[in-house]
């Protein structure tokens, strides 16, 4: 089978043709390793678990952001070379390896989990499974950053300094919707984290290897909460009126922030 793998670094590069024997059941990562062993010992590729759980081997295969370890060669057209390139939303380090450290810096900017006072004297909380089911979906994320890669706000417009991307909107949702959490992240979502840049084209959802319904279950619910807080005129008036009531939630929020 023929492959064209992008070789290069920050300064530039090109697609180099390779050929290797493939057998039934092989995935793209197997083929890349085989090429590495046979004809390109210096080919840089990041990988770890080979089971679709570590999120290390993210790449673009024939233009689709995918995990190399979960992409079967039998699912690709056999009559043309398989094109493998690094994720385009992040700077190249070398060959298929990109510098994804921007993501970790973004994560630090998001307000951490701040639980309410413990329910019991021993410092523990009481919570039912049904209360956390919604946010459990978001915990499936393996941080492969394919959603960040496919998001056109980052990929095409390079708004890394104004938009945190779908991965961190999911992360924010997992905190913001947690029934124990008391932190308010809506102002940051609207301003510094740029949720308004998302124009809900659902590309992130379509590439998620964990099948997290990113747009419908995380981003749109957050957008709606931002609407409640900043755009809904009737909610604004209601909040204004209730904030006049001493001890009301609205008054506490206004006075604290």
């Amino acid at each position: 089978m023929q492959f064209r793998i992008w070789r290069g670094d920050k300064s530039g590069g090109d697609f180099i043709p390779y050929e290797t024997e493939v057998t039934e059941g092989m995935v793209v990562l197997d083929a890349v390793h085989q090429i590495q062993a046979e004809s390109a010992n210096d080919l840089a590729v990041r990988w770890n678990c080979k089971a679709g759980k570590c999120g290390s081997c993210s790449a673009e295969i024939n233009g689709h952001p995918k995990l190399m370890c979960m992409t079967k060669l039998s699912d690709l057209p056999p009559d043309e070379p398989v094109k493998i390139e690094p994720m385009r939303s992040f700077p190249s380090i070398r060959d298929l390896v990109t510098d994804v450290s921007w993501n970790f810096r973004v994560k630090k900017q998001i307000k951490q989990f701040k639980p309410r006072k413990p329910d019991a004297d021993d410092g523990t909380w009481r919570i039912q499974q049904g209360e956390v089911e919604r946010v459990q979906e978001f915990r499936k994320c393996i941080e492969c950053f394919l959603c960040q890669d496919v998001c056109h706000v980052l990929r095409e417009h390079h708004l890394h300094d104004q938009f945190i991307g779908p991965r961190y909107l999911v992360y924010t949702a997992s905190l913001e919707m947690h029934p124990l959490d008391t932190e308010d992240r809506l102002a940051e979502l609207k301003q510094a984290h740029g949720i308004g840049f998302c124009n809900i084209t659902k590309c992130c959802t379509s590439v998620c290897p964990e099948d997290i319904t990113i747009t419908d279950n995380a981003i749109i619910p957050l957008k709606e909460r931002v609407v409640d807080e900043f755009y809904d005129p009737i909610v604004k008036i209601y909040r204004k009126l209730t904030s006049l009531v001493p001890g009301s939630k609205a008054q506490v929020r206004d006075s604290s922030g």
Binding site: G8, K10, S11, G12, G13, R88, S89, F90, P91, S92, W102, R105, V106, Q109, H158, H160, D161, Q162, F163, I164, A192, H193
Partner: peptide
């Protein structure tokens, strides 16, 4: 947030 250098 910081900008990312994408030179490729």
């Amino acid at each position: 947030l910081v900008q990312v250098d994408l030179p490729d």
